[in-house]
Amino acid sequence: MTETIIQGLLLGGLYCLFSLGLSLMFGVMRLTNIAQGDLIVAGGFAAISVAPLVGGHFVMAGVVLLPVAFAVGYALQRTVLNRTLGKDPLPSLVVTFGLSIVIQNALLELYSADPRSLDAGELATGSLNLGGDIYVGTLPLLILVAALACTAGLQLLFSTTSLGRAFRAVSDDREAAELMGLNSAKVYSVATALAFVLIALAGLFQGLRTTVSPADGPLLLLFAFESVIIGGMGSFWGTFVGALVLGVSQQVGFKFDPGWGVWFGHLVFLAVLLVRPNGLFPKTKG
């Protein structure tokens, strides 16, 4: 059982990276990014395509990819998504849903339907002994540590920097923030740029750990949603814990029957929704 739980926590680290971008965009501008999963898959394919051009190492692929993701996120928000924001959430849902379809088809066209993966080199086989006969893979552990670092980094950014203050202010009251001289369109664009960096990182790790294929997006989006909602909207640590809960639930289900993993995750998600409709760590209103 310990083994199962550890595997679940490691899987949860990956789910946390799937969901932080979603949590960030929703938190700052109440935008639900339906294309989240497909963007993760696109990030994975982009890493697979870039790696051979930069010497084959995934770290180099990341170094190239993450700044590009930042720029793409910024530009997408500035040119398209900002126009969809308003009191009505429907336009942004429709546009990101459309984006999701476009990405799926573009990936299918470019890469065919075959699952592909990114070579992790020596990391793929490495493992660490946690004492006794418990071993964990180096790569899954690295992913969990990265998730922890990203969550802590986001939380610090939000609570201690002037950019974080601007994120919270536009989220609270966009008009009042503009009265202070903030350009909310720019603030939103920086938020999406950061979300896209997290998305690219998630895609890179997904490609390293398992495979990506053009049709994977919706399922990844579902895992991201479940993590965010289990944890409670608007709290990054909540998202982190929500992702771990989902990862462990899936692993436990998988242990009973390989076909039950994902289903068990859904059941736990529904159970949490029933008992705590606002998630485990709902944002406390001031």
Binding site: R165, R168, D173, A177
Partner: peptide, 15 residues
């Protein structure tokens, strides 16, 4: 229209 998720000082700094 103060910002509820900001402290008193953060609200002033926004100004």
């Amino acid at each position: 229209r103060l910002f509820p998720s900001l402290s008193v000082e953060e609200n002033l700094l926004m100004g």
